[in-house]
């Protein structure tokens, strides 16, 4: 009788006190959203649909891709927590459980890109104080909102919104909403950046469960590739970047529309632009869903 009661108690204790979903597993990314940007990479000067301010625009106009080669410190710099969800997004998620209490302490994530690892603390610990170091993955804590996990990340290092030089500052706060529908995982991200954004920047990414996925080692060693004068930082002086109009010319967009800003996010902006005249023939990114399927010239 006593044993039966004990069993009953155990069964009851196993029932979740509140909704919790297990995100553990091997997840393969779906590139059906923003394929060209996430696969081969964004076009230079493509700032469309990002609520950037003038400072971000100027920083991106000044950016020169040579920097990631000439400045050795950039070569092995990983994606930040916000961008890691987008590029080479194969990931493994696993839970850390307190063996004494069976409570969830954290979700851990491992990414193919740069072998990055990230922890989302679920044990209620506070975020570090202001003077603490920042990290590429920042410091993340999670809270349940029904079956959705809402993650807040602070203490990010300065990084990029897009790999064409659009910056994201270290003051940014990243909020994520994780939802699992059977074998699909959707993460909606909201970036608030008082330095470079005029309103919240929202993106979403999707994965499917792929238990057979085996993540390779990415590995990265930085090395000087060309002799260069001490402290060279490649950049374009204001008004001298020759590549900024390529994007609008290739796709037939008005140049102003490629310059980004909150206004360009909303459908009403179309009426401002007049009629869109696409090029006679699609020659670029016509059918692009991964690294190798884009029709690049």
């Amino acid at each position: 009788m006593r044993r039966a009661l004990l069993l009953l108690a155990l069964v009851l204790a196993a029932a979740p006190a509140r909704a919790q979903v297990d995100f553990s597993g091997e997840w393969a990314p779906l590139y059906h959203e923003d394929g060209p940007e996430r696969g081969p990479g964004p076009e230079l000067g493509d700032y469309t649909e990002i609520p950037i301010n003038d400072a971000a625009r100027m920083r991106a106009d000044s950016w020169d891709a040579d920097r990631i080669s000439v400045v050795t410190e950039y070569q092995c710099r990983p994606h930040g927590a916000d961008y890691a969800l987008r590029g080479l997004g194969n990931q493994r998620i696993w839970r850390e459980i307190d063996t004494e209490t069976q409570r969830l302490i954290a979700f851990h994530m491992h990414w193919l890109a740069w072998d990055s690892e990230r922890t989302i603390w679920m044990d209620g610990r506070p975020h570090p104080p202001e003077g603490a170091p920042h990290a590429w993955q920042g410091f993340s804590t999670g809270l349940w909102e029904g079956n959705t996990l809402t993650v807040t990340t602070t203490h990010l290092k300065a990084n990029y919104l897009r790999r064409n030089g659009l910056p994201r500052s270290e003051q940014a706060i990243l909020t994520e909403h994780w939802t699992r529908h059977r074998d699909y995982l959707t993460i909606v991200t909201v970036i608030e950046d008082p330095v470079f954004l005029t309103e919240s920047f929202v993106r979403s990414d999707n994965w499917f469960l792929d238990p057979g996925q085996r993540l390779a080692i990415f590995g990265c060693e930085y090395a000087a590739e060309v002799p260069k004068p001490e402290g060279t930082v490649p950049h374009h002086l204001p008004g001298t970047n020759p590549n900024l109009r390529e994007f609008s010319e290739w796709y037939g967009f008005p140049f102003e529309a490629t310059r980004g800003g909150a206004e360009t996010l909303y459908p009403e902006y179309r009426s401002k632009l007049g009629g869109y005249k696409p090029p006679a023939q699609c020659e670029r990114y016509c059918n692009c869903s991964g690294l190798l399927t884009c029709n690049l010239k």
């Binding site: 891709a65 040579d66 080669s69 990290a135 993955q137 064409n164 060309v226 374009h236």
Partner: peptide
Amino acid sequence: IPAGCVASPSNTPGILGRRALPAGR
């Protein structure tokens, strides 16, 4: 605390133009 691929012509002498993947070895 617990812890690219933009193709562009180069304007730095000595750098190959057109990089297809994250630069660096």
